[in-house]
């Protein structure tokens, strides 16, 4: 079975880099131990999400286990979400080319619908990734 190639778009990569920098700045600005702990508590979920996205890219985790079907795009391509706590990555799959592309990254706390949908999104959509 051919492995899926996972490609991350410039926007996806830029969001990961910008968020990491934002956490670093917040850490530098934190003046008390409690403030550092607060930033760390928010950084850990982001780090987990970023590592999952990198694992997908590096073939360390198969898309069928991590991505969940969300919706079909205007062009009829399936859209998938990689959800880890409050972080979410949007992916699209090209079945003919066996590629999966990361489009963007979202903070779920900014997207109320996804927060609610978290429990309702369909289980991993294996049929596209076999």
């Amino acid at each position: 079975m051919e492995a899926w190639e996972v490609i991350l778009s410039p926007a996806f990569k830029a969001k990961l880099a910008a968020t990491r920098t934002e956490f670093e700045n917040r850490l530098n600005q934190a003046r008390s131990r409690r403030a550092v702990e607060e930033v760390l508590a928010q950084y850990e979920p982001f780090k987990t999400f970023a590592l999952l996205a990198l694992d997908l890219r590096d073939h360390k985790s198969p898309p069928s286990e991590l991505l969940r079907y969300y919706e079909t795009s205007e062009n009829g391509n399936p859209l998938y979400l990689l959800i880890s706590e409050r972080w979410c990555g949007l992916f699209t799959a090209d079945v003919s080319k066996h590629t999966c592309t990361g489009i963007n990254v979202y903070d779920l706390s900014e997207i109320p619908l996804l927060k609610r949908l978290k429990g309702r999104i369909q289980s991993p959509f294996r049929r596209h990734f076999q």
Binding site: S9, S73, E74, L79, R116
Partner: peptide, 21 residues
Amino acid sequence: IWIWRALMSKDRILKDAAEFE
């Protein structure tokens, strides 16, 4: 308000996907 936010959020994902495509 919740329905409006839900619709807007859903649109945002689909809009991003459409723009990317």
